[in-house]
Amino acid sequence: MKTIMTGILAGAALALTISAASAQAPRSTLDQVKARGVLNCGSNTGLAGFGVPDAQGNWSGLDVDYCRAIAAAIFDDPSKVKFIPLTAQARFTALQSGEVDILVRNSTWTMTRDTTLGIAFLATNYYDGQGFMVRKSLGVASALKLEGAQVCTQQGTTTELNLADFFRKNNLKYTPVTFATADETRSAYEAGRCDAFTTDASGLYSERLKLSRPDEHIVLPEVISKEPLASAVRANGDSQWANIVKWTHYAMLNAEELGVTRANLAQSAQSNNPEIRRLLGVEGKLGEGIGLTNDWAARIIRHVGNYSESFERNVGASSPLKISRGVNALWSNGGLQYAPPIR
């Protein structure tokens, strides 16, 4: 009997050791990413201009560039990113559970999400607002004329909530038809299941390109909500990681503001302007303060470019979407994009 008791006790001791080991404090996210050699980036399953893989599996888009910029700052190599496509439903759970290190997936920054999901929103890389798309043949020129309409939308989004608010506020009746993914939503709208299709305005332009006859559809003028699309990380007190994510975006904005581009990076490094010299790490040791090298911002600009370059390439004039900067212009040009100074 003695041997049995000893055996059970030994087993219990072993069990306790294992659980004690698993309860140890985790390493910082930056260390994990460095050890892994690749950044896990939660991305859209396919939204042209923001995050979409091409036929060869190469990802591109404004959100994608954000992740590439972080990889460039850490590894000096923008290809060290693994893009993990997430549906609207799966995205926050994937971030919470640690499946991704960062979520840049046109996700709206709201108070509920910021305070109750165990995640923290950091920097708005695109200011958006929700709109409606309808068939021209419907003869509707304003969202206020959508009384009795059936509206296709994606479930589990702020879009779904704003839609309910908008019709309630204007005392209009409507019927929502919700789908799990953007593709299902769009194809149902295209099949005539709904009178209107609603999502963020940028998404409407992007989805319209995928319709068989884009010209037969118009985007209504009303913008019914504020949709700051922002990057998010786990709210686990890892402020170093939060700083890297936040300041990557700010570095791209500051670079635009100071006129530093991919093309003139080498000359800019010779500049006398102390702001540029600090940004590019010629002076000061700001990069080391966030666990990176001092040329972290120079790496970002070399591989990805400044915010304007990324914007124009993915959603602006040099892209099929042709979205104007609008509220996403720099504050100095009357827009909302404003970065704290690097000093």
Binding site: A88, Q89, F92, T93, Q96, T112, R113, T116, L117, G118, Q155, G156, T157, E160, L161, T178, A180
Partner: peptide, 14 residues
Amino acid sequence: QVFLGTVLNQTGRA
């Protein structure tokens, strides 16, 4: 669709 999809996503209580 409603509970496991929308409600989960709006509340985050996976």
